[in-house]
Each structure stands twice: as structure tokens, then as C-alpha cells.
Computed example of a mutant assay.
Amino acid sequence: MENPDSELEITTEFVPAFVLTGGASLPSEEEFTRTTWVAVTEGGLNARIVVPESRKIRDLLGAGPLSVHEVTARVKVPLGVGRVLLAQLRDSGVITSRPAIPRAQKPDRALLNDVLNGLKAKLGA
């Protein structure tokens, strides 16, 4: 009788998320939102990185800063996994992060009218 395990072959590249992250937990929602900007540090370009996905992130950010959402999409990892990997890279000094620039608030219409009226009075228009 033939051994049933002899024909067993791994046919996918699926790696469970907890293997990629080393079992680390998610950082807080405020730390790495989808729009948080991340960039590699000068010293981070030469850092020794073991996890292939983290190395891909570092290499990707070598071309310039990106949002967390862009990084996870390009490296093809789930958002949660990407957030953990980014937190690990930040904690080891490979990358820096900063919150996204908030949307501008609508200007006060009354203030704009006052400015317009003042300019009209000053310039005689």
C-alpha cells in the first residue's frame, strides 16, 4: 500500500496572519488609521529585517511616504496584519509615522463677506 502522505503537496502560498506578525496584537486604532502616513527613516534603509513582508514594506517606503492603506494594498496583506507589521517597524526605528493632515474646515461665510466688503470699500469697487 502506498503512503498517503507521499502525494501531499502544498499548493498555495497562504501563510496564517499570526505567523507573519509573530502573534503580536493590533496597535490602537488611533496609531495606524488607513490614512496615517508612514515613511522609512535614514537608518531604516539599511536595517536587517527577517520577515519578508516587513522587508517589502521597507523597500516600498524607500521610494517615498505612503498611507497605511496604500502600503497594505501593495504588499498584499490584510489591513490588520499591515498595521501590526508597521507598528513593529516603527518600534524598531525603521519607519516613522504621522497622522494624516485633517480636512480643512469650511471658512466662516460671514468673515469672508466682511473681508470682501472691506476690500471693496478700500479699493472703491
Rank of each mutant, 00 (worst) to 15 (best):
L86N: 13
A87H: 15
R83G: 11
K120C: 07
V50Q: 00
S92N: 13
S25W: 11
V38P: 02
A24M: 08
E30W: 05
R103H: 06
V94T: 14
A121Q: 15
L61Y: 12
V84M: 07
E13W: 01
E30Q: 10
K76V: 10
L123S: 01
L86M: 04
A100S: 15
L60K: 00
A87C: 14
L60S: 00
A104V: 03
L60E: 14
G82T: 07
R90P: 08
P65M: 05
L26H: 13
P27N: 15
R74M: 11
K120H: 05
R48P: 00
L89P: 02
V94F: 12
I95P: 05
G64D: 14
L20W: 01
A73S: 12
L116E: 10
V51Y: 00
T35N: 10
R98K: 15
A87G: 10
P4M: 03
S92I: 06
R34A: 15
T33S: 12
E9D: 10
F14G: 00
P27T: 02
N117Y: 06
L85Y: 03
G23I: 12
N113C: 04
L116P: 03
R58G: 08
T35Q: 15
W37Q: 14
E13Y: 06
A17C: 08
S54Q: 08
S92K: 03
T11F: 06
E31S: 08
Q88H: 06
E70T: 12
R55L: 04
L119Y: 07
T41Q: 08
G64L: 05
L116A: 15
T33Q: 09
N117K: 07
S25N: 15
V19E: 13
P16Y: 02
L66C: 07
A17W: 07
A47D: 07
G62D: 10
N113E: 13
V94P: 01
L85S: 00
K76H: 13
G43Y: 00
G118R: 10
L111S: 05
A73G: 04
G62F: 03
E2K: 04
S97R: 08
I95G: 07
A47E: 09
G62S: 15
F18K: 03
V84H: 04
P102Q: 08
S28D: 14
A125R: 01
L89G: 09
D91Y: 01
I10V: 14
G82M: 09
S67V: 03
K56H: 10
G80M: 10
V40W: 04
E31K: 05
N113L: 07
N46R: 10
T11Y: 11
D114S: 09
G124H: 04
N113H: 06
A39L: 13
V77G: 03
